[in-house]
């Protein structure tokens, strides 16, 4: 709108004026007619065009993380779920399975404790714990700068595979690119069939859904077909694997999926 222009120092703004006519714009923002002085103050507002993505800073840090991982030849997975779905149990099984064949590491996000990191200790993997409780309330997700911090404490050259175990939460982690190559989630059948519909952003963001606690199926009124149908309406392309971290049912399919990702060239640019 108005006389939009950009200065040599990179700032850009427009000088607002009232229009009685329409005209074409070559930029993305909307045409406002509320410029000018409607405020009752002596001077009218001057609108400065900004057009910056609010996730921009995080996304730049995520790209840098991914570049560092690619340079070291490390495949990185962002593992997300609600609290208690079985992320740590899955990683316990997985690290045990991979021990001696794949050099793995874990960045573990936890609001307060080291309980989960303690569970993974001694399984042959490098563990880097990220407590998110600094600040107030504790962050409900990991973001790319936090993961960058954790990456600094890991010997990437000694790794082939890195799991980022996100904070248990189906909302916020889906919004933040941490710089992983693959986003996967654990969804347990004790959570209800409607979860894909209630948390579409999370279910849409992932390429693999591990449906966990499948051993409990005979004991629950859980409609597995309904869960899959709901998932398909949100994310028709996701791979779905039914597993039990307790009985190890289906975990071979997960290990095969992982090895297929390890055999690929990690992708530098995602999003």
């Amino acid at each position: 709108m108005g006389r939009f222009h950009r200065h040599e120092d990179g700032t850009a703004h427009d000088h607002g004026h009232d229009h009685a006519h329409g005209h074409e714009h070559d930029h993305a923002h909307r045409h406002d007619h509320d410029l000018g002085d409607h405020s009752g103050y002596d001077t009218g507002p001057q609108r400065v065009s900004v057009l910056e993505h609010i996730f921009g800073e995080n996304d730049d840090a995520a790209d840098a993380n991914r570049a560092a991982l690619c340079a070291a030849g490390v495949v990185c997975l962002n593992v997300m779920s609600s609290p208690g779905a079985g992320k740590t149990a899955l990683l316990e099984r997985t690290l045990s399975h991979l021990q001696g064949s794949v050099r793995a590491g874990v960045i573990q996000g936890d609001i307060e404790t080291s309980l989960d990191a303690d569970r993974l200790a001694g399984l042959g993997a490098q563990i880097s714990l990220l407590n998110t409780a600094n600040g107030f309330g504790g962050e409900c997700h990991l973001d790319a700068p936090m993961v960058a911090n954790a990456l600094g404490r890991i010997d990437l050259d000694a790794l082939e595979l890195l799991f980022v175990e996100n904070v248990g939460n189906l909302v916020c982690p889906a919004e933040f690119d941490v710089g992983a190559h693959h986003r996967v989630m654990v969804c347990s059948i004790t959570e209800g069939e409607d979860k894909p519909l209630k948390y579409p952003v999370m279910f849409r963001a992932v390429e693999l859904v591990l449906v966990n606690k499948i051993d409990l199926l005979p004991h629950l009124d859980f409609d597995l077909a309904l869960l899959e149908a709901n998932l398909r309406t949100i994310n028709p392309h996701a791979t779905v694997l039914k597993v039990s971290t307790r009985t190890e049912h289906g975990l071979d399919d997960w290990y095969a999926w992982l090895r297929a990702r390890l055999a690929e060239e990690p992708v530098a640019a995602l999003r």
Partner: peptide
């Protein structure tokens, strides 16, 4: 979308919240 499109300069700059306006 999640974008900061523009800012309106002005206000009284004294830390007081200006009254809400109809279009905003």
């Amino acid at each position: 979308e999640f974008m900061l499109t523009s800012i309106d300069l002005g206000g009284r700059g004294d830390g007081q919240v200006p009254p809400a306006r109809g279009r905003h």
